[in-house]
Amino acid sequence: MTSLTIALLLAAVALGVLAGAHYLGRSRKPWVVTLHLAAGALGAWLFFLLLHGRDGAPPGLVPGLLLGAAVLGGLLPRLIARRARKPAEWLLVAHVFTGLAAFLTVLSWSARL
């Protein structure tokens, strides 16, 4: 299940790069964003199942917090973009860096299993 978690989170990163390229190119591809959201949410869910299911697993507080912040940081800009575009863009930038940090810490955490 660890490899499936990493594969889903890697797919979320790749789809996020693709969604970001479309965003910067001012073209809208909602299916890319939907797949990005699905892969990221499923990967985070599997990570939390791994944390809960293993008694001898190393503590995963930092990757868990970063994954939660990345998911929340990806959903919030969508909710506030219509009213305040600049803060939404800054939240999106924070989402990118938090998501990458979460992916790297999950990789580090899974290497210790």
Rank of each mutant, 00 (worst) to 15 (best):
residue 49 L to R: 14
residue 59 P to L: 03
residue 9 L to I: 06
residue 38 A to I: 08
residue 6 I to V: 13
residue 34 T to F: 08
residue 61 L to C: 01
residue 104 L to K: 06
residue 8 L to V: 13
residue 10 L to V: 07
residue 85 R to H: 13
residue 101 A to M: 08
residue 107 L to P: 04
residue 69 A to K: 05
residue 35 L to W: 00
residue 71 V to T: 08
residue 5 T to H: 05
residue 112 R to A: 15
residue 12 A to T: 09
residue 45 W to A: 15
residue 77 P to F: 06
residue 81 A to L: 02
residue 19 A to M: 07
residue 30 P to I: 07
residue 4 L to Y: 14
residue 45 W to M: 12
residue 76 L to S: 03
residue 100 L to S: 04
residue 102 A to Y: 08
residue 1 M to Y: 14
residue 48 F to L: 14
residue 107 L to G: 05
residue 36 H to W: 06
residue 58 P to W: 01
residue 113 L to R: 13
residue 108 S to P: 00
residue 14 A to D: 07
residue 37 L to G: 03
residue 27 S to Y: 01
residue 111 A to H: 09
residue 42 L to N: 10
residue 94 A to R: 01
residue 14 A to I: 14
residue 78 R to Q: 09
residue 40 G to I: 01
residue 16 G to L: 02
residue 41 A to R: 01
residue 69 A to H: 01
residue 105 T to G: 08
residue 97 F to A: 05
residue 110 S to M: 08
residue 96 V to T: 12
residue 87 P to H: 02
residue 108 S to A: 15
residue 92 L to Y: 12
residue 55 D to Q: 12
residue 59 P to G: 07
residue 81 A to N: 01
residue 73 G to F: 11
residue 62 V to W: 12
residue 36 H to F: 08
residue 92 L to K: 08
residue 74 G to N: 05
residue 107 L to F: 06
residue 109 W to H: 14
residue 51 L to N: 04
residue 65 L to C: 10
residue 33 V to D: 03
residue 23 Y to L: 12
residue 79 L to R: 14
residue 96 V to D: 06
residue 56 G to H: 09
residue 78 R to P: 02
residue 44 A to F: 07
residue 41 A to W: 04
residue 51 L to W: 10
residue 2 T to K: 10
residue 85 R to D: 09
residue 98 T to V: 15
residue 51 L to C: 03
residue 13 V to P: 00
residue 24 L to N: 04
residue 62 V to L: 15
residue 46 L to Y: 13
residue 86 K to N: 11
